[in-house]
């Protein structure tokens, strides 16, 4: 439990750093972006909305930076992330609508690609030297393709040329969002191609990492001993794989950040209504409150995923759990 506590502390600290960076950036950047923004908005939105935006940046600039910082934090805890300039509604409301799509898409794809990558990497590592090794350069190539580029190619080939998958959006436009069977089925159908794209882009990383670990672990004494014990081949492989997967999970924190970063752009390619698509529209319209809100939400989500990975790691590696040695 002490380890979880330490990790939790790290994530709280990280969240605080992210929040502070979020606050400081608009205040420290040359050209006074907040004033420019508010000046641009005069007459476009209601005075109340301007006030909400001003508060979400920490209030008036006449107050000191520290006082603005506390106002900003206070607003944050009250759920005021400001008002989107382009969409003219509170950032928190907008996020509530798009976050579930992203979590669903990225969650499912990450899980799938981790499973597929780990299992295939384990086999690839175990059968090193066999014909399967030919997969490595291919996997390396896929790993190097930017997510959004692969998604574009997939969209072009399987979506608009072959019409195997529906493209653009997250569900059929003829349906009303809700927990109805046709809607859920349609959501799954529309998620297929984005999921396949993300999995194809990210699976090679897991696979190559697991392969290396498998080769390293296969050279350990306890794997040789499991052979000497006459265990079945399946059990021997499981012995190695069970130990080789631990570093993969330990590295999840780095990987989740990268996968999320890549997957956000896939949303753009497919016009998927998640936070990625939202973020890029916000960037193009210089919708700063929205950009910042999205950054915070993504960071918090990634931190939560990291904590989850830590718990899983702890459950799988008894060595990290021991605090008193007999």
């Amino acid at each position: 439990m002490r380890i979880i506590g330490r990790r939790l502390l790290l994530y709280v600290l990280t969240a605080w750093v992210a929040i502070s960076v979020n606050f400081l950036l608009p205040h420290l950047m040359p050209g006074n972006p907040i004033q420019t923004l508010i000046g641009k908005l005069q007459g476009q939105v209601t005075p109340q909305e301007i006030e909400a935006i001003r508060l979400s940046f920490g209030g008036g600039i006449d107050k000191g930076l520290l006082s603005q910082y506390f106002t900003y934090i206070d607003q944050l805890f009250h759920g005021n992330l400001g008002v989107s300039i382009t969409l003219s509604s509170p950032v928190s409301t907008i996020l509530k609508a798009s976050v579930p799509w992203t979590i669903g898409l990225i969650g499912v794809s990450t899980l799938l690609s981790f499973l597929i990558g780990t299992v295939s990497g384990a086999l690839l590592g175990w059968t090193r030297g066999s014909r399967l090794d030919a997969l490595i350069p291919t996997a390396t190539f896929f790993q190097a393709i930017p997510y959004f580029f692969l998604a574009t190619v997939m969209l072009l080939i399987f979506g608009s040329n072959l019409h195997w998958f529906p493209v653009l959006g997250a569900y059929s436009q003829n349906l009303h969002p809700g927990w109805t069977w046709p809607f859920v089925a349609s959501a799954f159908r529309y998620a297929e191609l984005p999921v396949v794209s993300i999995v194809l882009s990210s699976v090679a990383g897991w696979m190559l990492g697991m392969r290396n670990m498998m080769i390293t672990v296969a050279a350990e004494d306890f794997v040789l001993m499991s052979v000497a014990m006459g265990l079945s081949k399946r059990k021997v492989i499981m012995t190695a794989a069970r130990n080789a997967v631990l570093p993969s999970i330990a590295n999840l924190s780095l990987a989740i950040g990268l996968v999320v970063s890549g997957a956000l752009l896939v949303e753009l390619v497919f016009n998927y209504p998640g936070v990625g698509d939202l973020l890029l529209n916000a960037v193009q319209n210089e919708d700063y409150p929205l950009i910042q809100g999205i950054f915070l939400v993504i960071t918090l989500a990634v931190l939560a995923a990291n904590l989850l990975a830590d718990v899983v790691y702890l459950a799988l590696d008894p060595r990290t759990r021991t605090e008193t040695v007999a």
């Binding site: 999320v260 970063s261 956000l264 993504i298």
Partner: peptide, 24 residues
Amino acid sequence: SMLSNVFLAIPGLPLLIVIDSYLP
């Protein structure tokens, strides 16, 4: 170590986008 762990945990691309969008 704490500093590098913090930077590891913050997703890089979104941070990059935020910083970059404020650049003149």
